[in-house]
C-alpha cells in the first residue's frame, strides 16, 4: 500500500477570506495529482495553503510529519541583476544537474539573468523539481516552455514520482495533465463556473 503524504478533507482555502470550494484530496508517495479548473477556482490558492502560505478556513489539511516539501510558484525568483549561474542555483537547492536537457546543460555556467525566459524558467523549475523533497508542489510548470521542454518536464516528473516523490501540480494544459498525472482533480469556482 502506498504511503500517504498529504490529505485534504473538505478544505476551504484563501488568503484573507475563503476562496475555494471544499475539496478532498489524497496524495500518496509516487503519485502525480493534477489540479485543474477555471481561472478563479483557487488552484494556486489551494497549493499555497498546502505550502503554508495561504490560510485554511475550513476542513482538515494533514501532511506527513516532518515531510520535506518543495514549492514552485508562478512568481519567478528575483534574478534580474543578480550574478548567479545556473550551476550555483542548482547547488543552492541541492538539485543534481544529471538529466538536464542538452539545451540547458550547456549554459549552466552562464548567469541566469542572461538566459532566455524559457531557459531561465526551466532551470528554476529543475532546481525545485530535483531538490531533496518528498512532496513537490508545482504551479503552472509548463509556462514559458516549448514543446520539447514540456515533453522533457513530463518525463522528469514521472522519473521523480518513480523514485517515490509525491507531486501535486496545477496546470491549464489539459494535454500535459492527461499525459503526466495519475489522477486529476477538477476544482469548481466558488461562483459555480
Amino acid at each position: 500500500m502506498s504511503a500517504a503524504l498529504l490529505r485534504l478533507e473538505q478544505v476551504v482555502a484563501g488568503w484573507t477570506a475563503p476562496a475555494t470550494r471544499p475539496l478532498d484530496l489524497l496524495v500518496d508517495a509516487g503519485s502525480i495529482v493534477g489540479l485543474c479548473g477555471a481561472n478563479g477556482a483557487g488552484k494556486s490558492t489551494l497549493l499555497a495553503a498546502v505550502a503554508g502560505r495561504a490560510q485554511v478556513f475550513h476542513g482538515r489539511l494533514w501532511k506527513k510529519p516532518k515531510i520535506r516539501c518543495a514549492l514552485q510558484t508562478q512568481e519567478a525568483p528575483p534574478l534580474a541583476g543578480l550574478p548567479l549561474s545556473g550551476r550555483e542555483l542548482l547547488a543552492l537547492t541541492g538539485a543534481a544537474a544529471d538529466g538536464l536537457p542538452s539545451w540547458l546543460a550547456d549554459c549552466l555556467e552562464r548567469r541566469l539573468d542572461r538566459l532566455s525566459g524559457g531557459q531561465r524558467h526551466y532551470l528554476g523549475l529543475w532546481a525545485i523539481l530535483n531538490a531533496p523533497a518528498e512532496l513537490l508542489l508545482l504551479d503552472e510548470p509548463t509556462n514559458n516552455l516549448d514543446a520539447a521542454g514540456v515533453a522533457h518536464l513530463g518525463a522528469a516528473l514521472r522519473r521523480r514520482a518513480g523514485a517515490g516523490c509525491g507531486i501535486v501540480l496545477v496546470s491549464h494544459d489539459p494535454a500535459f495533465v492527461a499525459a503526466t498525472c495519475d489522477r486529476v482533480c477538477r476544482l469548481e469556482a466558488p461562483d459555480g463556473r
Binding site: 505550502a51 503554508g52 502560505r53 520535506r68 516539501c69 518543495a70 514549492l71 510558484t73 525568483p77 528575483p78 534574478l79 548567479l84 542555483l89 543552492l92 537547492t93 525545485i128
Partner: peptide, 8 residues
Amino acid sequence: LYPDHFRL
C-alpha cells in the same frame, strides 16, 4: 530567491 524555503 525562495522566500518559502524555510517555512516549507
